[in-house]
Amino acid sequence: MAAKTKTPTKKKEPKHLDRDEFDLEEIAYTLTESMKENKVCAYTIYKHDELLEGTVVKMDANTKLIHIKDRYMGIHKIHFLDILKVSDVD
Rank of each mutant, 00 (worst) to 15 (best):
Thr63Lys: 09
Glu13Ile: 15
Glu26Gln: 15
Asp23Cys: 06
Gly54Thr: 04
Glu53Ile: 03
Leu52His: 03
Lys47Glu: 12
Met73Tyr: 08
Gly54Phe: 01
Leu24His: 03
Ser34Thr: 15
Tyr43Cys: 02
Val56Met: 07
His48Gly: 00
Asp70Tyr: 05
Gly74Arg: 06
Ala3Phe: 14
Met59Val: 07
Pro8Arg: 15
Asp88Lys: 06
Pro8Tyr: 15
Ile78Asp: 02
Val86His: 06
Leu84Val: 10
Phe80Cys: 08
Asp90His: 01
Thr30Phe: 04
Leu24Tyr: 04
Cys41Gly: 00
Ile68Cys: 03
Ile66Trp: 05
Lys58Pro: 00
Gly74Asn: 09
His67Val: 03
Leu24Asp: 06
Leu51Pro: 01
Lys85Trp: 03
Leu52Ala: 03
Lys47Arg: 13
Leu51Trp: 07
Glu26Phe: 12
Asp60Cys: 14
Glu26Arg: 14
Met1Gly: 10
Met1Lys: 00
Ala42Pro: 06
Glu33Thr: 02
Thr44Gly: 01
Leu24Ala: 03
His48Ile: 05
Ile45Lys: 04
His16Leu: 08
Lys4Met: 11
Ala42Tyr: 06
Tyr72Val: 01
Ile66Lys: 06
Asp18Leu: 12
His79Cys: 00
Lys36Thr: 03
Met73Cys: 02
Ser34Arg: 08
Met59Ala: 06
Asp82Tyr: 03
Ile66Ala: 10
Leu52Arg: 04
Arg71Trp: 02
Ile83Pro: 02
Ile75Pro: 01
Asn62Trp: 00
Ile45Val: 12
Cys41Trp: 00
Tyr29Asp: 12
Asp88Leu: 07
Asp90Arg: 01
Met1Asp: 00
Cys41Pro: 00
Thr55Arg: 13
Arg71Lys: 14
Lys36Gln: 09
Thr32Glu: 09
Glu53Cys: 08
Asn62Glu: 07
Ala42Lys: 10
Met73Asp: 11
Arg19Ile: 09
Gly74Glu: 11
Ile83Asn: 02
Ala3Thr: 15
Thr63Phe: 05
Val56Pro: 07
Val57Arg: 08
Ile75Cys: 00
Phe80Ser: 08
Glu21Asn: 11
